[in-house]
């Protein structure tokens, strides 16, 4: 998995690309550090270029959800499609994570 970061006022946008899977755990620490940015209120995960997510990757999204909640930051996942959407639907996490088209 690779990611790029865009910061705009109170929002941080994380643009994920490639595959988010069990071998990516070491990257999670870097992402969580972004949440320490002063004044951030929204954390947007853009999945347009994400091609695959496994159950461990979904676990990482849920860890990010917990971490953002602890900091009163709103997390939104956007642009799910294809195999990524299939996995998210199977995991039934739509009640916990805010998903936008």
């Amino acid at each position: 998995m690779d990611f790029q970061v865009r910061k705009d006022g109170e929002s941080i946008e994380l643009l994920l690309s490639g595959r988010l899977e069990f071998t990516d755990h070491d990257r999670l620490h870097d992402v969580i550090e972004l949440l320490e940015t002063r004044g951030v209120r929204r954390f947007i995960i853009d999945a347009k270029d994400l091609t695959f997510i496994d159950s461990a990757g979904i676990g990482m999204l849920l860890i990010l959800q917990d971490e953002t909640e602890q900091r009163n930051i709103k997390m939104i996942v956007r642009k799910l499609h294809g195999d990524v959407k299939r996995s998210i639907d199977l995991a039934r996490i739509g009640e916990i994570i805010t998903i936008e088209e």
């Binding site: 496994d54 159950s55 461990a56 979904i58 676990g59 849920l62 860890i63 996995s87 199977l90 995991a91 039934r92 996490i93 009640e95 916990i96």
Partner: peptide, 16 residues
């Protein structure tokens, strides 16, 4: 548990 951070691998396999 829908909020658990692990344990979905077997659920995926059973479903598919």
């Amino acid at each position: 548990d829908s909020g658990a951070h692990s344990g979905r691998g077997f659920l995926f396999m059973r479903a598919l």
